[in-house]
Design a protein around this nucleic acid. Structure first.
Length: 479
RNA sequence: GGGGUCGUGGGGUAGCCUGGUCUAUCCUGCCGGCUUCGGGAGCCGGUGACUCGAGUUCAAAUCUCGGCGACCCCA
């Protein structure tokens, strides 16, 4: 592991690092002239599609069906859920005109789709036989952010919002669905090698209209928590507003119990940051737009032979299903190495005179910088093994560094120090009372992520009221 | 919600304080050529910018106000 795997800029100048990483890797174009809107570039879009493919696979295999609802929601429907709208009030874009005519009914650009989907649920759900109903869609949503915007992280148009909505006959079924969604999301983040903590959000930070909310948070290199997924148990709150009743076996009617859960392109930001180093991103082979780049090293007299072998290997690997790019440009090899490293391509194959002569190929890992050779005869098999290994090791490294950034503390002053230093997540004992939870936030300047789902309780007393702790909370500076 | 800094070719910048000599600096990229090729090569030629609007002034990249945009801090 050499100078190339440094994490100095990555850690100490994270904000700049992130913008440059997106630019150098050609993921996003950030110069679109409207605040908070960005352009997906071809390479970035390929990455996005890989990530979405995993998402779709996981949802389909757990019985969700994909749908696509309209972007526009009429004001009357939108405002029906008074409590819900309070959550997005002031953040909604309105369409007020059609051509030169002022619209009688204003249309909201969806900030999320509950208010457009649930009225349709009311038409679709008649009896218990229609339940459970599990759908999802991957759409863009609009939120009028007044704060600073940041590509992939804080957007006015979230271009990639996966939202699942389910309806169930009983409260128990809805709760079970929440647990199932947690499991699905775990698998999803594991595929990306993105580490996380799972918390039950505190009462004062619950999604408008939800009974309770569960969230996944990861950690940015600057020590701030980044929420990358949320799961809500909506109980019958929306069902009552939108009249989602079903007929039970005995003929009685009851409101359905609902859940919804979402993940956005923030998860791509997370993948970029947790696996990055000073050179830029390094994508796990599972989602890398290009998994293997092949660079032929030409040499005097026999320019063609390296090229020929490179072409053959590229063809073989492609046929075996790998995403391969053969870089035949007339540039010096060093330049190509550098460029592909900045694109986060996890594996590079070099084929030069020595390699051709010895019937081998030189292999370089992006994540570790490790360099070695493998025989041409077994390229296919070896590459498969190495990519798998890289996936595994990248995930393990990310988790290790993540867990090192979570510390158990029992003193408010010490917690505040961690918050001020942006040094990660703190676990602290908690009596469970809302007043004490809010006091945590006031006295440490951090945000309470919530109560950890895996029940890692800390012993001791609540540092605010000094009464015995019933549970523990996670606290962090957040995005 | 409050406060601050900033905006110069595709990217990064010098110049601005103290208006004129700016026909706007340098690095990089990009295009063409030569030469090279196992870690960002070199040489020659070329391309390309003062965020927008209003104002002050004989004169504005430079000063004033506003819009749009970027970044930072605090609540």
């Amino acid at each position: 592991m050499g100078a190339r795997m440094k994490h100095e800029r990555w850690k100490n100048n994270f904000s700049e690092w992130f913008d440059e990483a997106l630019w150098n890797a050609k993921i996003m174009e950030t110069r679109y002239p409207v605040k908070g809107l960005y352009v997906w570039l071809p390479y970035g879009l390929k990455l996005r599609n890989r990530v979405l493919a995993i998402m779709r696979e996981l949802l389909e295999e757990t019985g969700h069906e994909e749908v696509l609802f309209p972007l526009l929601i009429p004001e009357n429907l939108f405002k029906k859920e008074a409590e819900h709208i309070r959550g997005f009030e002031g953040q909604v874009y309105w369409v007020t005109h059609g051509g030169k005519d002022k619209l009688d009914v204003r249309l909201a650009l969806r900030p999320t789709s509950e208010t457009s989907i649930y009225p349709m649920f009311a038409l679709w759900i008649r009896s218990h036989a229609d339940l459970p109903l599990k759908i999802y869609q991957i759409v863009n949503i609009f939120r009028y952010e007044t704060k600073m915007t940041k590509p992939l992280i804080r957007l006015r148009e979230v271009t990639t919002f996966k939202e699942a909505h389910t309806a169930h006959a009983t409260s128990e079924d809805a709760k079970a669905q929440v647990r199932a969604a947690v499991e699905t999301y775990k698998k999803f983040f594991d595929e990306l090698g993105v580490p996380y903590v799972i918390t039950k959000r505190p009462s004062w930070d619950t999604f408008a209209g939800a009974e309770y909310s569960i969230a996944f948070d990861t950690l940015a290199p600057d020590g701030r928590a980044l929420q990358v997924g949320t799961i809500h148990n909506l109980g019958q709150n929306f069902a009552k507003v939108y009249g989602l009743e079903y007929e039970k076996e005995g003929g009685a009617h009851e409101y359905v119990y609902q859940t919804c859960y979402g993940i956005s392109e923030r998860v791509i930001a997370a993948a970029v940051m947790v696996h990055g180093d000073d050179l830029g991103p390094c994508f796990p082979p599972r989602v890398a737009p290009v998994q293997i780049v092949i660079v032929p090293i030409p040499f005097k007299g026999e320019e063609k032979s390296a090229e020929k072998v490179a072409k053959r290997i590229a063809g073989e690997l492609k046929a075996a299903g790998f995403r391969v790019h053969l870089d035949e440009r007339d540039l010096r090899p060093g330049r190509k190495f550098y460029e592909w490293e900045r694109h986060g391509v996890p594996l590079r194959l070099e084929i030069g005179p020595k390699d051709v002569k010895q019937e081998q190929v030189t292999v370089v890992r992006r994540d570790t910088g490790e360099r070695f050779t493998i025989s041409l005869k077994v390229v296919n098999r070896e590459v498969r093994k190495i990519l798998k290994q890289i996936n595994k090791e990248m995930r393990a490294r990310a988790w290790k560094s993540f867990l090192n950034s979570i510390r158990d503390l029992k003193d408010l002053g010490e917690i505040k120090k961690v918050m001020d230093a942006r040094a990660g997540i703190v676990r602290a004992p908690w009596c469970g009372k809302e007043a004490c939870g809010k006091a945590f936030e006031e006295k440490t300047r951090g945000s309470v992520l919530g109560e950890e789902l895996n029940d890692k309780r800390m012993k001791g007393v609540c540092p605010v009221c000094l009464k015995p702790a019933k549970t523990s909370v996670l606290i962090a500076k957040t995005y």
